[in-house]
């Protein structure tokens, strides 16, 4: 299940899950990933698109997106 759909995400990086009451903080890149996950983009798509927005290599981005999603999983958000 992709719980990211229901998250209230504010621009300053504060995330609130209205179904569980949990809250999280993230940074700008984390926000970018979350917003794309909400739109059901795959991790590969996310990496490719973010590659165009940020100064970073695709390889580093792929690793980071995978790790970020891993981390969402440990929080039960994915």
């Amino acid at each position: 299940m992709n719980r990211s759909q229901q998250l209230a995400i504010s621009e300053n990086g504060f995330i609130f899950d209205p179904t569980t009451g949990e809250s999280f903080t993230t940074n700008q890149t984390g926000l970018a990933i979350l917003n794309r996950l909400k739109k059901n983009e795959s991790s590969m798509e996310i990496a490719l698109k973010m590659r165009e927005e940020f100064e970073v290599s695709l390889e580093e981005l792929e690793r980071d997106v995978a790790d970020f999603i891993d981390h969402l999983r440990t929080y039960g958000l994915m």
């Binding site: 949990e22 999280f24 979350l34 940020f54 970020f68």
Partner: peptide, 21 residues
């Protein structure tokens, strides 16, 4: 213009661990 990159990080707000510092 591409933006400066920072590794994405997410942290849960947990009692006792909510020190932004």
């Amino acid at each position: 213009m591409r933006m400066k990159y920072e590794t994405p990080v997410i942290q849960k707000c947990q009692t006792g661990l909510m020190n932004k510092f």
